[in-house]
Amino acid sequence: MKPTLLILAAGMASRYGSMKQVDGFGPNGETIIDYSIYDAIKAGFGKISFIIREEFAEAFKAKFEPKLQGRVETDYVFQSYDLKPFGIDKEVERSKPWGTAHAVLAARNQINEPFCVINADDFYGYDAFKKMADFLTSEVSDEQYSLIGYQIDKTLSDYGSVSRGVCKVDEKGNMVEINERTEVYFKDGDVFYKDATGENQLAPDTRVSMNFWGFTPAVFKQSEPMFKKFVEANETNPKAEFFIPLVADELIKNGTASFKVIPTANKWFGVTYKEDKPIVQASISELVQNGTYPENLWA
């Protein structure tokens, strides 16, 4: 059974100021998601599932169905504010959904095969998709999950600090813990992060998570009770989000599953700030020129 690619595309793109999931970056208006899907199909994924807000469904389908028809199966998962499907009988006022791990849970009735999760607005590169497809085809189990580990110095923006999930990896290549550093930046060519203790330096090859995770459907049952607890603890905190690293951390700590950190030397790029856009366009243009991608992706 071919694995499924689950794309997190329900975010509001608040920092970027527009619906960047459908913004064009390639020579023929290709979105970042187009490149991810192209790489995923080439790497052997059999289905693409988009997690979106229901009101964006028509815009998404109009953009992606004509290109993907006949190439790969597609599916749409809606992330909403309704807690009843999770057995939570209350309404909580929020301005945005409950976060990435909640988005994954929204797919629990639609995915029955090993799958991976990525962000819609991040460029990951073919190497990462190939390594993940191989893992999901031959290694994954209900006790062994994975994430792609990028080198931190290949994931930063020149235009401001970013948040990164910094991984601590053991000698077997498994993640021991993941720490969300909310202010990571370049300074004089070195990598630093700021927290309550002040400014701290990180080695340039420190592995970070760019939200590229590999699972089996067992993760739905494993994470649902965590989500219920999370809602109970945070119903008065409208900004609290149930993130995938929280789930990973708990599964590791309670011995339910380990997470293999699959290293890639690919340069990650994404659009956090408006100023990042020309850099992403130039990076994609270079990949087209060197033959990594065709000029017209879906021609």
Rank of each mutant, 00 (worst) to 15 (best):
F192K: 06
K172S: 12
M132F: 04
V140I: 09
A133W: 04
F129K: 10
V176D: 01
G198S: 05
S223F: 10
P114E: 00
F115Y: 10
K131V: 06
T216P: 02
N179C: 03
Q151Y: 09
A120E: 01
D190R: 15
D122C: 08
S209K: 04
Y193C: 04
K154P: 05
F115I: 03
S146M: 00
A203M: 13
A218H: 15
S146E: 02
V184A: 04
Q222K: 15
S163E: 11
I118K: 05
E199D: 09
K172H: 12
F215Y: 10
G214I: 04
A120P: 05
Y159R: 13
V184C: 11
K154G: 06
I152F: 07
G165H: 13
M226Y: 11
Y150T: 12
L202P: 01
C167E: 06
S157W: 01
F129S: 07
V191S: 02
Y159D: 06
T216D: 02
A103S: 08
F115N: 09
A203K: 15
S157T: 05
A128E: 07
V169E: 01
M175N: 00
T206I: 08
D127T: 14
T206S: 07
T182V: 11
V219Q: 10
P217K: 12
A133L: 06
S141F: 08
F227K: 05
Y150A: 07
Y124F: 15
A218F: 14
N119F: 03
I148E: 08
R164H: 09
D170T: 04
N179D: 13
D188P: 13
S161C: 08
I148N: 05
G173R: 07
V176E: 09
Y145W: 11
V184N: 03
N211K: 06
S163Q: 12
R164N: 14
F227H: 03
L156I: 05
